[in-house]
Design a protein around this nucleic acid. Sequence first.
DNA 1: GTGAAAGCGCTAACAC
DNA 2: GTGTTAGCGCTTTCAC
Lengths: 338, 338
Amino acid sequence: MARLAGVSEATVSRVLNGVGPIKEETRQRVLEAAAALHYVPSAIAQQFARRRSGNLGIILPLLPKVNLFATHYFSELLSGIGATAKQEGYDLLLFFQGHDEPRHYDRLFQAQKIDACIILGAQDVPAEREALKELHAASRAFCLISQRYEDEPYNTVDADHASGVRAAVKHLLEKGYERIGLLNGPSVYSNSRDRLEGFRQALAEQQLAASDAPVLIGNYSRKSGYSHADQVAMLIRKGELDAIVAGSDRMAIGLLQGLKEHGLTAGIHYGLVGCDDSEGSRLTDPALTSLTVPFYEAGSEAAARLLTSASDEEAESGFQLKLPVQLVVRGSSAVRPL
Amino acid sequence: MARLAGVSEATVSRVLNGVGPIKEETRQRVLEAAAALHYVPSAIAQQFARRRSGNLGIILPLLPKVNLFATHYFSELLSGIGATAKQEGYDLLLFFQGHDEPRHYDRLFQAQKIDACIILGAQDVPAEREALKELHAASRAFCLISQRYEDEPYNTVDADHASGVRAAVKHLLEKGYERIGLLNGPSVYSNSRDRLEGFRQALAEQQLAASDAPVLIGNYSRKSGYSHADQVAMLIRKGELDAIVAGSDRMAIGLLQGLKEHGLTAGIHYGLVGCDDSEGSRLTDPALTSLTVPFYEAGSEAAARLLTSASDEEAESGFQLKLPVQLVVRGSSAVRPL
DNA sequence: GTGAAAGCGCTAACAC
DNA sequence: GTGTTAGCGCTTTCAC
């Protein structure tokens, strides 16, 4: 105890935490003693006494081994969260959530392991809704990223996927493509629904009938894109399709590879746009036009809103952020030769 | 307090922790009461009383925004660590370490935030060595992944990069390539040194002079691979090189793209092998032959060794694991046409 | 087999 | 401004 070294008692606490009025001289004495003794306060005891853990929980889906969250999506998000959390004096506590496991999110709060939490990869399924409702009922500080529940007032941070897809379709039309299709992800993710909506809006704006525009559903994986190649090749050959927007870069890349086997090259025989502007978009030949999503900012915004509101005890009004998405044009959507 | 519901006192603790002899009947009573009251023990208080945090710290390098740890490397590692930690009842506490920031690793132990820790992306630089020495001096349970210090007895888990590169070189020679080069990473990483060693061994085994085999040094990024393309193209044109092993898939891919601009195609004009068997290796055209590294296993092994030894108070003997690496053959190292 | 009591190392009233 | 005094909610000797 540094109190021996100095002369005081709980004053040490005040000095170290910078609370209450302290005479500069004693402050110095305490600081010196602490330094001399290499004193490091026990975080465990502090947490206990303060009844707050100082931890920001992060719940992320445990995808099957390989390609877990390779998609640079989680990487960016985590970095953004981490930077802000550090700045606010919080540590990051990670929880992998198996898809089938019971979602005991609130238990993390009850156990006081975390003071706030960010949920990644939430799905629109009953078990998830239940778990979130519980959090909300208990007034927990939590936030969803990249997933919204239209009928619930939860805090969310998302990208404006609808605008993104609108921009993509507009771009393709300007490039001379005429029959645009969509390879979307499953509707348990709100961003899939957003993309569909953006797609329809874009067609409507151009007075194009959305009803006969091809919309295929995959699962966001490269494999899924690849497996749709046969069908897409047929549509292209029949003249019913000449460009496609995919809900993820991975699906786009799989599709691109599959169509190459059909002798169809992106940017020549058809136009292709992906989503996420992942590293992979730069690896294909031709490189993939994509929509860049500010994941880092999403993470840091989410953390900032949660953590600063946690310290303020003010009535926090909740938030539903929608971050802008931007088109990055590359070879896969080059001018269409007639 | 569940004690009201039941009748006992500290017995609750015993029941919930399954220690000491308990009459089955009281055990049931306590359990029922706990269930009825939705009792969840405070992790914070438990940690405090037990003087252990129950956290496994993970230190990972904070790389500049984009492509942070996209490389599936960290993803796999984290998943492996997470799975084992969960199984052992530990939570994961994440710390991003800026390259320039002071490395106060031991402070995490002093503050009792963590009971053990895994360090990813450690470099062989003085500040790092200093921080690790401090951990070792204080007998902390820690482990390095993918980095060894030859002169220090630290716990490590690594892949057998030397064998991997040997296998790669052998494979290329068998395919008919004759003048193999190496595009390596910087020697602050032990795996770079390992690869160089494996490379030299392989040449020596084949009675080839290692001295005039081209060895280039990049920094593991795609950009770095790309920027070596000019030099490599020249070597190929001069007949001084016809195949190359790159220290990472990303460098290999950058090189492949750069050489394509020189009109040189992997698998036709030259042979190419990468390292890590990342997702990107399947995206290039041709697909990239690579060395598959068991990152998931590395993570889970590291966690297992640390956490089981932490509970056993036995003399833990330390460990230096070397996991096997395997060659995955794809198009970039096809038979060389003469 | 179970209760009683001490205490983990801090913070936060409350006096002085 | 600073010391005194209670706990925070568990675990853990030690008796019984």
